[in-house]
Amino acid sequence: MAAKGGALVLRRLTKHYPNMAAVDGIDLEIAAGEFLTLLGPSGSGKTTTLMMVAGFTPPTAGDVLLDGSSIAGLAPERRNIGVVFQNYALFPHMSIADNIAFPLKMRGMARPAIAAKVEAALGLVQLSGLGGRRPRQLSVGQQQRVALARALVFEPGLLLMDEPLGALDKKLREDMQFELKRLHGELGVTIVYVTHDQEEALTLSDRIALMNAGRIEQLGRAEDLYERPVSRFVAEFIGESNLLDGRVEAGWFTTPDGIRAPVAARADGAVLLMLRPEKVVLAPESATDGLAGTVSELVYGGDFTRYRVAVGAATLTAKIANSRAPFRPAVGASVRVLWHPGDECIIPK
């Protein structure tokens, strides 16, 4: 089952409904063998985009190209794209083996060849020997694997996955994430993955397209989105962040309520300063630099402690690793809040 990845291109892809633009002119190039995640809150257009690629939702405008040729006019059954649906959509009246054999049967493959392929597919997802069972006799995690095997057995170049791990509990979800990574590496299939779970997106993807209101807000690697968000939306959606509105002038960031800190920004003007909580450093009051603040709240979280520190009118969150924290202020303590120059991210407005 050595599938070769297909290259997918979306060109000004648009879906308008009478009262709203579900997808508003998306341009996206996905390389062969890439794992790309469409991430976004519900209603951001990620599933609509996926359904347009699969062929279930006709686009209002724009084009979908697979390996260079347009597939926008093709019926779903002629696109040769594997799809894993949200609730797996296994056929309840067929055995597991028949479920996996279905796409091969539709392609007119001979019976012995089908049997061999089904066996191989079951082995690939580590379900050998369960071919005779019915879907409802399997656990949710096993059903997920069957859905995956069925979507891959006909060796599509492109695999679409719509929130496939949503129904699994945390432990199982993590197992399946590893499994997916392994399969992706083994098969080289191109995967477009839809999720609203940012952690999942960060863990799995080569690149992430963060969607908001029918558009791609930011496209990049996990680090790009986490370390260098281009907008307030990205900064707030991915991970935790401290956000301060202010201005940069001559290398100093200032806010209207008096926070003043040196930053590594080149251009002057109105900006949004983003600082991840784990980049924040707390120092004793006696320190000479940093912002003066008061610890208003602390929550012990095992490997880290989360501090809420009131700095002027703002409240900053600091996530301090417990392993290397010589300074552990209590609630009400006066502290200095600082960070290493360059750890902040300046988002121009």
Partner: peptide, 15 residues
């Protein structure tokens, strides 16, 4: 009958 089953069938190559 879950309509997703029919969509799944289509995506797997069934007219």
């Amino acid at each position: 009958i879950d309509p997703a089953l029919l969509r799944a069938g289509r995506s797997l190559g069934a007219p």
